[in-house]
Structures are given as structure tokens and as C-alpha cells.
């Protein structure tokens, strides 16, 4: 564990807490893509199967349990508790275009050809693009509540922190994880547009609005 990774994980944790807080306080999941949230559940469940057979650390264990349970809880909030506030008609990204290619990539690129390792690769590839339905929805509506943008910024920061973590681990431990690194760079790049608007508008006190 190094500071970059710790900051990354804490941003990830914060992003989820911000999202739950937004839904609870506004009593609405307006502006949140259900598809993206469902993809995150898929990501966590397919990646953290090692909870059952591999022990890393207490920290690792609790974080995994938290990510699986909180992402399922968010789906519950969106589909049950605040269902009327969820508008599927603007959440139109075709996720089969993400799931299919990620499955194929996982079959080609993995560290071992076992069910859990292929699922691990699949989860890494899927995570890198899971935010697309959300960004697509943002693009379509052209605006977002400020709290939603904080959620996205924390999620993007999590990915950004992992990059210096990998550089650090390369120098200090002489290990590199090519699958995680390449998809991590792709994932971070997807946030660049969003970050530009976030820094130039939201952090200056303006509303998040995309130029028409």
C-alpha cells in the first residue's frame, strides 16, 4: 500500500458516499444512470470472487465487501425506493456494445485461463468503460446537479490516483500489471472532458452546463 493507492481508494469510497447522500437528501436519483450503476455491480461481483478463496488483508476484505454491498444498495434505491425519480428514457446507452467487447477482450487477454481470472480481466475492462452510459446521459441532457458532478469528480480522481500508484509500484516493487494499467489509462482518459468542465465551471461556483 502506498499513499497514491490509499488516496485513490478513499476517493472511490467518497464517491459512493456522495452518491448515496445525493439520492437520500434529494430523495431522487435524477441524473444518475442506472445502467452505469448496474455495470458497477457486475464489475465488483465478477472481480471480487476471490473473497471466497484468497486473503489479502483486512483492509482489502472490508473494501471489497463495501463496494459490492453499496453498489447493490444503490441499485435498490434506484429501482425500488426512489423508482419514480429514475427516468429510463434518457438512459439510452446500449450496454451490449460494452459487455460484448469486454467479454471478448477478457477471453484474449488474461493472466491465466481459468474462470476467475477471465472474470477478473472482464471486470477490469468493463470498469474502464462502465461510466460511459453516465457520461452519455450527461452529454444528452447537457447539465447536471452540482452534487452529481462531485460524485463523478471523486470517481475520476480515484482512477487518476491509481496511475502514479502503478508508476510507484514499478519503481519500488518492480511489478507491473499490464491489463490493469492499460485499461486504467483508458478509463482515466474518458474523464478528461468532464474534468475540464468541472474545473472551469463547477469549482468556480457555476452550474455544470455543456455548451449547446
Amino acid at each position: 500500500m502506498n499513499l497514491f493507492r490509499l488516496f485513490g481508494d478513499m476517493s472511490h469510497l467518497a464517491s459512493i458516499l456522495i452518491l448515496v447522500h445525493k439520492i437520500q437528501t434529494t430523495r431522487s436519483c435524477r441524473g444518475i444512470s442506472f445502467k452505469t450503476q448496474a455495470l458497477y455491480v457486475t464489475v465488483f461481483v465478477s472481480r471480487y470472487l476471490d473473497l471466497f478463496y484468497d486473503w489479502v488483508s483486512l483492509y482489502n476484505f472490508f473494501m471489497k465487501v463495501f463496494f459490492i454491498s453499496s453498489s447493490c444498495y444503490i441499485l435498490y434505491l434506484m429501482k425500488m425506493k426512489f423508482r419514480p425519480t429514475n427516468d429510463p428514457s434518457i438512459d439510452t446507452f446500449r450496454i451490449e456494445y460494452l459487455l460484448g467487447p469486454c467479454a471478448i477482450l477478457a477471453l484474449i487477454f488474461h493472466y491465466k485461463f481459468t474462470v476467475t481470472e477471465v472474470l477478473w480481466s472482464f471486470s477490469i475492462f468493463l470498469e474502464s468503460v462502465a461510466i460511459l452510459p453516465q457520461l452519455f446521459m450527461l452529454q444528452r441532457t447537457g447539465e447536471a446537479e452540482t452534487i452529481t458532478t462531485h460524485y463523478l469528480a471523486a470517481l475520476g480522481a480515484y482512477r487518476a490516483f491509481y496511475i502514479p500508484n502503478w508508476i510507484y509500484r514499478y519503481w519500488t516493487e518492480d511489478i507491473v500489471d499490464p491489463i490493469a494499467v492499460t485499461s486504467g489509462i483508458v478509463q482515466t482518459a474518458l474523464y478528461l472532458d468532464f474534468f475540464y468542465v468541472y474545473f472551469t465551471k463547477v469549482l468556480q461556483g457555476q452550474k455544470f452546463e455543456l455548451p449547446a
Binding site: 472481480r47 484468497d54 489479502v56 463496494f67 493472466y111 500508484n165 518492480d174 511489478i175 490493469a180
Partner: peptide, 10 residues
């Protein structure tokens, strides 16, 4: 460098 098969990252 070595690639790690042991997934210790989240």
C-alpha cells in the same frame, strides 16, 4: 519487471 497474478489492488 514481473507481472503479478496475485490481485492485491481493488
Amino acid at each position: 519487471p514481473e507481472t503479478h497474478e496475485h490481485h492485491d489492488e481493488l
